[in-house]
Lab assay of single mutants.
Amino acid sequence: AFSSEQLARLKREFNENRYLTERRRQQLSSELGLNEAQIKIWFQNKRA
């Protein structure tokens, strides 16, 4: 489960760009304390 802070950040990123570069995913992973797979799957689900 994502914290409300993490979700807000993911939604902001998604609004700016529906697709993440690998580098951006790595940055978000480290900033949010999530693993890259969690972020990747969140974006895939959000696009679906």
Rank of each mutant, 00 (worst) to 15 (best):
A1Y: 13
F2C: 05
F2M: 10
S3Y: 02
S3W: 03
S3I: 02
S3V: 03
S4K: 13
S4Q: 13
E5R: 05
E5I: 07
Q6T: 07
Q6F: 02
Q6Y: 02
A8S: 08
A8C: 10
R9P: 00
R9D: 02
R9T: 07
L10W: 00
K11T: 15
K11G: 11
K11H: 15
K11W: 15
K11F: 13
E13H: 03
F14S: 01
F14K: 02
F14M: 02
F14D: 01
N15V: 07
N15H: 11
N15K: 12
E16M: 08
E16Q: 11
N17Q: 05
N17L: 04
N17H: 09
N17E: 04
R18L: 03
Y19K: 07
Y19S: 06
Y19M: 08
Y19T: 08
Y19A: 05
Y19H: 13
Y19N: 09
L20I: 10
T21Q: 04
E22D: 14
R23Y: 12
R23K: 14
R24P: 01
R24E: 08
R24Q: 11
R25E: 07
R25K: 11
R25W: 11
R25S: 15
Q26G: 07
Q26A: 11
Q27M: 11
Q27R: 09
L28W: 01
L28S: 00
L28E: 01
L28R: 00
S29R: 03
S29W: 03
S30N: 11
S30W: 12
S30C: 11
E31H: 03
E31N: 03
L34H: 01
L34A: 04
L34E: 00
L34P: 00
N35H: 10
E36K: 05
E36Q: 07
E36Y: 04
E36S: 08
E36T: 06
E36I: 08
A37E: 15
A37R: 10
A37L: 13
A37Q: 14
A37W: 14
I39M: 03
I39P: 00
I39D: 01
I39L: 08
I39V: 08
K40N: 14
K40W: 11
K40R: 12
K40T: 14
K40E: 15
I41P: 00
I41G: 10
I41D: 15
I41L: 12
W42C: 05
W42E: 02
W42Q: 01
W42L: 03
W42D: 02
W42T: 01
F43T: 00
F43S: 00
F43C: 05
F43N: 00
Q44P: 03
Q44Y: 09
N45K: 10
N45V: 08
N45A: 11
K46G: 07
R47E: 09
R47N: 14
R47C: 13
R47G: 07
R47T: 10
A48L: 12
A48D: 10
A48V: 10
A48W: 08
A48H: 11
